[in-house]
Nucleic acid binder design. Structure first.
Length: 425
RNA sequence: GUGGGCGUAGCUCAGUUGGUUAGAGCGCCAGGUUGUGGUCCUGGAGGUCGGGGGUUCGAGACCCCUCGUUCACCCCA
């Protein structure tokens, strides 16, 4: 056993998996930037009070916060999500609206790890602030849907619900509380505890014993104001226009207290583990105001990177990219030729690797094979004397001599032209 | 936080009712007429059996504690 290993709920993402993560983020960025969302990078920790706005009664705040006092006595917390940070950023910088941003990065929750759940977990997401229009709800949901499609996921189901406005939500919660209290003897003890903290979340119970009572509970739809109801209808109609299939679920309440009106969740039906929600989001029209900013509507979603990749595995799509270099330089002279040839080829835009420690030609060829390189460039005394290097095509095993000054031209002919990525001047 | 399963080589795992120097496959390294990979053959390196305590003449096997991991609950992505 090694002396040190990763802390519980954290892990190393090694190659080639990390390359897969990068690809995941790149596809996400392409998808949402095409709709006008700009990248935002909020800090990984901030004043714990920012996150308390998520809701004191939520598990995320009451028992999962990674909070501590810093050396200056400030009470800070590692972010458990990024929505609150984005709203804090909006209140702090007051950008013009609509303000549409996207993010990626790790979040932290002190939970016990299990399949698809970690203490440090990555999410990608978008937030759009300053717009009440239901068309924005549709755009946000559609972008998540589009992204899943681009990954190749087929077995993702969209559940959607409306929690109404502030007043609707309060009246509904009250009605639920009364209903559940009158049936408290038939509920599981766990559900009764939840009832004390937040009656809404009793609806979320997966326990068999609660199913019957929940089925008879009042429906949110009966409490929606006319404007909230109309807004919701418009969202559903927009989804139909785009041909995005959805299932209305009146029990979808989600665990964060700031949600208003539209809430939605993406569930992978390919996942057999308990954590099968791969993404979720909704409107949070009061959150910016709660954080001391102007009364500003907002909507967004977050997708769990780890879970979405688990879903990809379950469906056999979006595998880790195969990593390979263009050429592998085998130098059995003294290693200095490999040094300059790899450098020269890299400057020309080709990826080139080599072996170290003056290993035998056989050993170097083995490394060349493992590197996945299409060509091995072999340099021994003979080649040095001739000023031409042996190039071996690793797939056909054909070899030929190429003058050392013609290497780039040879690769251009066989692999296509390349130029290294540079910052445009 | 609660409950169940599991910790033996880098990886996947064997290891008989407790009994000598703990094994295999894969991977890695080195050889197989010294200029050549992917197949094959031979050899080699690599383990304080998660850690600590206990029972015993003797523990990788049994007991306790602990740490880690995994699955589930709770909750969430």
């Amino acid at each position: 056993m090694p002396s040190f290993q990763t802390s519980p709920g954290t892990r190393d993402i090694l190659p080639p998996d990390a390359a897969r993560w990068r690809e995941f983020n790149a596809i996400f960025a392409d998808t949402v930037e095409a709709a006008g969302y700009g990248c935002i990078i909020p800090p990984m920790f901030e004043d714990a009070a920012v996150f308390h706005r998520i809701g004191e009664a939520t598990d995320v705040v009451s028992k999962e916060m990674y909070d501590f006092q810093d050396k200056g006595g400030r009470h800070v917390s590692l972010r458990p999500e990024q929505t609150a940070s984005v709203c804090r950023a909006y209140a702090q910088h007051r950008p013009t609206t609509p303000w549409k941003v996207w993010y990626t990065g790790p979040n932290f929750r002190y939970e016990k790890a299990q399949a698809g759940r970690y203490r440090q977990f990555d999410q990608v997401g978008i937030e759009a602030l300053g717009v009440y229009d239901s068309a924005l709800d549709v755009e946000v949901i559609a972008l998540a849907w589009k992204f899943y499609q681009r990954l190749g996921l087929l077995n993702v189901q969209l559940f959607i619900n409306s929690l109404g406005d502030d007043g609707d939500r309060e009246r509904y919660v009250e009605a639920l509380r009364n209903y559940f209290l009158s049936h408290a003897d038939a509920l599981t003890p766990e559900a009764c505890q939840t009832l004390n903290k937040n009656p809404l979340r009793v609806l979320d119970s997966k326990r068999q014993g609660d199913a019957e009572i929940i089925a008879g509970a009042p429906k949110i739809t009966e409490f929606l104001s006319d404007s909230a109801r109309q807004h919701f209808e418009e969202v559903l109609e927009g989804l139909r226009v785009l041909g995005i299939p959805f299932t209305q679920n009146e029990h979808l309440v989600r665990g964060l207290d700031y949600y208003r009106r539209t809430t939605f969740e993406f569930v992978s039906t390919a996942l057999e583990s308990a954590q099968n929600a791969v993404g979720g989001g909704g409107r949070y029209d009061g959150l910016v105001k709660d954080l001391g900013g102007p009364d500003t509507p907002g909507i967004g979603f977050a997708l769990g990177l780890d879970r979405t990749l688990l879903a990809c595995d379950a469906e056999g799509v979006f595998g880790a990219p195969s990593s390979s270099v263009d050429v592998f330089v085998v130098d059995v002279v003294d290693g200095t030729y490999a040094l300059s040839v790899t450098s020269e080829l890299q400057d020309a835009g080709y990826s080139a690797d080599r072996a170290f420690d003056a290993r035998s030609m056989k050993a170097q060829m083995k490394s060349a094979d493992r590197s996945g390189a299409r060509f091995a460039i072999i340099i021994a005394q003979d080649e040095v004397a001739r000023g031409s290097y042996t190039i071996r095509d690793m797939t056909s095993a054909q070899q030929q001599l190429v003058a050392k000054g013609d290497l780039v031209e040879f690769l251009t002919r066989n692999l296509g032209a390349r130029t290294p990525r540079r910052h445009p001047s």
